[in-house]
């Protein structure tokens, strides 16, 4: 479960401070797949980063008792001049997967992302599809209670999407997901609860269909 208490989050821009959320309080019940929907720039990704502890609010607090993945986004923390393998190793080291564990994870990501010997090429030579496949596969190689997925699944081709769905089916037996997406079919399929982010406000819809209706309205 997540609990946000009086969360205020702003960013400093050259033109002054812009508030994303002001005095936001809400709690999200445990054991639900969470969908974050809203227009571009509404604050979905910010909210996701706040939930994951990757970013911190200006004031207020975010609390959870579960393990949460790093935000799996389109570019996600990769060093462009390092090869895919080196980037995977980097994350393995940070998460303490050494030796055989590390080899397993690398093999898993290589197979999942279907990059073959591209794994030894620098990440910056990858297409955006390949990059997001690696990013998604890498997060799937580790076990978390919640996965933070930021529009990664929407860029792949049909075959990769099917694969994502399969892996998800398996992962979702044990884990939950916080999904940022514009694809309402995904939301319908995966999510149990929808958070509609609009104008710095968040509406929680326990009924997914109702949330999607509000989003489309």
């Amino acid at each position: 479960m997540f609990e946000l208490r009086n969360v205020t989050k702003s960013y400093l821009t050259p033109k002054g401070r812009r508030y994303v959320f002001r005095n936001l309080s809400l709690s999200i019940p445990p054991g639900k797949n969470i969908g974050l929907i809203g227009r571009n720039g509404a604050g979905k990704s910010t909210l996701m980063r706040l939930l994951g502890g990757a970013d911190i609010p200006d004031s207020g607090s975010v609390a959870t008792d579960r393990s949460i993945s790093w935000p799996v986004g389109l570019t996600g923390g990769f060093q462009g001049s390092m090869t895919g393998r080196e980037n995977i190793k980097f994350v393995c080291r940070v998460y303490g997967a050494m030796g055989d564990d590390m080899r397993d994870k690398i093999r898993y990501v290589q197979e999942f992302a279907e990059i073959g010997d591209w794994i030894d090429e620098p990440i910056k030579t990858y297409s955006s599809g390949m990059r997001s496949r690696v990013a998604f596969g890498l997060s799937m190689a580790f076990d978390f209670d919640y996965y933070l997925i930021d529009e990664v699944m929407s860029v792949g081709d049909a075959q990769f999407k099917r694969k994502c769905a399969d892996v998800f089916q398996e992962k979702l037996q044990q884990s939950k997901v916080v999904l940022v997406t514009h694809n309402m079919n995904e939301v319908k399929k995966i999510c149990d609860i929808v958070l509609l982010v609009r104008n710095g406000e968040i509406q929680v819809y326990e009924d997914v269909a109702e949330g999607i209706k509000a989003y489309n309205a």
């Binding site: 609990e3 502890g53 911190i56 609010p57 607090s61 975010v62 609390a63 959870t64 008792d65 393990s67 949460i68 998460y95 303490g96 997967a97 564990d101 580790f142 076990d143 978390f144 209670d145």
Partner: peptide, 21 residues
């Protein structure tokens, strides 16, 4: 209720690793 943005952060990181390895 480990507050993620409070000084107990190091412990939060510790339990974070429990599930993984």
């Amino acid at each position: 209720f480990l507050k993620m943005n409070s000084p107990v952060h190091s412990f939060a990181r510790l339990c974070f690793a429990v599930n993984i390895l």
